[in-house]
Nucleic acid binder design. Structure first.
Lengths: 318, 318
DNA sequence: TTGTAGGCGTTATCAC
DNA sequence: GTGATAACGCCTACAA
């Protein structure tokens, strides 16, 4: 990789002139410009981003931090955001982290590099962000928030999502619902279950909540409560449920219905029949773009939208 | 983010002394050192990586490029590599790319940043890497190679993998095998199918190859050839097959066996019963580490190893 | 039209 | 034990 100074030496002119030529700025004779551009192309010249970042105090990079596990949907989301950012000349860099220490370390490094924004899925809930960090970096969190002022948590109203899911199944004629969720403590998990419970109470239908899914716990829940539908916290759990059911010889949707959440492109590609509630992807990408532009945006009013496919049946007369 | 110069001003000393204190180098009085370290901690001081990179011409970052689709296993692999690199003070930065243009653009940027190594899954097969780029960057490719001298393609012998898979199923008593693979043209896909065919011929057993899996094509293949086992190119396809089979009411492994490849942590977490051939993950991570240390390593002699779980049955007497 | 100079934050070296 | 200075590559501003 050649530098603009070396380029200048090679062309027998000053570095300043090279710079003008490279940036298409006035004040260079056509002949000189052509000579510089040709030399630059020949050497595959690229300005050193570190030098530019040092000088301008700004980077074209946008950082992202993703836990090493449980990340398929967020990988999809970040891919989508990355696409939108690329259109603005920004580049998304994803760092996988295993635990809180690595998470904070990555944040520190991003801050030191003067990244303007960092998108994160914290590996744990409620991680405390040191004040120094929070003030020098705009942190956008998904899934679960962090402690620290200035950290922006971007999420739809998940209690509403739980309510919507139960109401949808109720409208389809289901009165006994199993809610499969996780024991992790994130905002989305807690709120969605609360929403489910609230709506189940309103509609006077039976709701059983199953945490920590496995073959035994699922069979037991099916036998105990005889649900006609399973609402899974996300598509990932829904697929797990589908695979477990198929091993037990239970047919979907004849014997039981399954509803997922996210409409994760990767997981739907795996099983295109899954009925699921689509995460407001486009709205999120739009919100991130607006936040980058300095606006304050919330997703609280955005709703997941049911995408009806083959894993939920409806009962006649409902 | 405070700079070492500002730190020096605050402590009323020169920047050089601050630097010595921060790096635990001799030539600073204990009192001064303490004063500097305290101030640094108070301000959350971090050296600016861009400045260091500019000066030293080296970066602590290792780049990685991943296509936005079909990337679950490689995400797992990169997570593993990232862990190993973190232990050496290097940080893995993954950039998702959609197509060849974005791929080359990301490579150019990595080169300009003086990243020493880049790990890549090319979004297409056989992309041409400009000579400039290849010479200023050590490129490690997985899955499929790129044209360009100096590009290091790291892959086990996939023809051998195909042979091993067929032999394994044959030993389990299967004589009619369906090989589900993809129409993409990567080294792994082509070689593995070749290996399957070769071994099937050697063992005089029936092998049918199915490209572009879907409900109809699968049913037709099952009816036409009556296979007793399905060898899927990877775990992803294996899960797709399992889900399709369950919809058709075909039981695994009673009615038919399913064998995947990769032992992808993410996908196995989704379905812990899948019998699969484990990618030599540890060996790959070790190879990457050695290559970073300047050695030339190949994975050609490494083999995938069958992990027997519940989706492959064996016939008595075999 | 072109050259020069200063500075971004480090690190390394040399002088005191 | 400490300060001053050059250099990394780029960009901006000003001088010739």
């Amino acid at each position: 990789m050649i530098s603009s100074t070396e380029l200048a030496r090679e062309c027998g002119i000053s570095q300043g002139t090279v710079d003008r030529a490279l940036h298409n700025r006035p004040g260079v004779s056509p002949a000189t410009r052509e000579r510089v551009l040709r030399a630059a192309r020949r050497h595959g010249y690229r300005p050193h981003p570190a030098a530019r970042e040092l000088l301008t105090g700004q980077s074209k990079m946008v950082g992202a931090i993703l836990p090493t596990v449980n990340n398929i949907f967020f990988m999809d989301l970040f891919n989508e955001i990355g696409r939108a950012l690329a259109a603005q000349g920004l580049r998304l860099q994803i760092t996988p982290v295993e635990n809180r220490e690595a998470f904070l370390e990555a944040l520190e490094d991003f801050a030191a590099r003067r990244y303007r924004f960092v998108l994160t899925i914290p590996p744990e809930d409620n991680i405390a962000i040191p004040a120094q960090l929070a003030s020098s970096l705009s942190i956008l969190t998904f899934l679960s928030s962090c402690r620290g002022k200035g950290v922006h948590f971007l999420s739809p109203d998940e209690e509403q999502t739980g309510r919507d899911a139960v109401r949808y199944l109720h409208r389809k004629g289901h009165h006994r619902i199993l809610h499969v969720t996780s024991s992790r403590r994130t905002y989305a998990i807690g709120a969605r279950t609360r929403g489910c419970r609230a709506m189940a109470a309103e509609l006077a239908l039976k709701l059983h909540v199953l945490v920590d899914l496995n073959a035994e716990s699922l069979v037991q829940a099916l036998e105990t409560d005889r649900p006609t539908a399973i609402f899974c916290h996300n598509d990932w759990l829904a697929l797990q449920v589908l695979l477990l059911l198929s091993e037990k010889g239970v047919h979907v949707p004849e014997d039981i219905s399954v509803l997922g959440v996210d409409n994760s492109p990767t997981l739907i590609a795996l099983h295109p029949n899954l009925t699921t509630m689509a995460y407001p992807m486009a709205e999120t990408v739009g919100a991130v773009e607006k936040i980058f532009a300095g606006k304050i945006i919330s997703l609280q009013k955005e709703r997941y939208k049911v995408i009806e496919r083959a894993t939920v049946r409806s009962f006649p007369g409902n």
